[in-house]
Amino acid sequence: MKEKILKSPEFRAIVRSKNAISIFLTVVELFIYFGFILLLAYGKELLNQKIYGPITAGIPIGIGVIVLSWILTGIYVTWANKSYDDNVAKVREKLGGE
């Protein structure tokens, strides 16, 4: 039974797609956060630039890191709820694993 699941192309596709999207989103999050830190260290002029009244560019950028992080988790959940769960259900049904 286990062998059958492991060898099935559907199961391999599930593992591949989940790893791909997890790693991709992790790398995006790392870029966003460590990009923000590097901006704090080397891009102060940009962050200190006023964009509207007294509001500096740093404010929407900082809040943006928080909001973007949340959006990324939303993207993952949406993907997983739609495509991943369906594929998992198909494999479980097809191979009769419960």
Partner: peptide, 24 residues
């Protein structure tokens, strides 16, 4: 002022990592 925001950001960014690599 702004430094407080930098601190908060640091405490939030671990959560996507929990989701993508660990939780399920």
């Amino acid at each position: 002022g702004y430094d407080g925001l930098i601190y908060s950001v640091g405490f939030l960014v671990g959560w996507p990592i929990v989701m993508f690599l660990i939780a399920e």
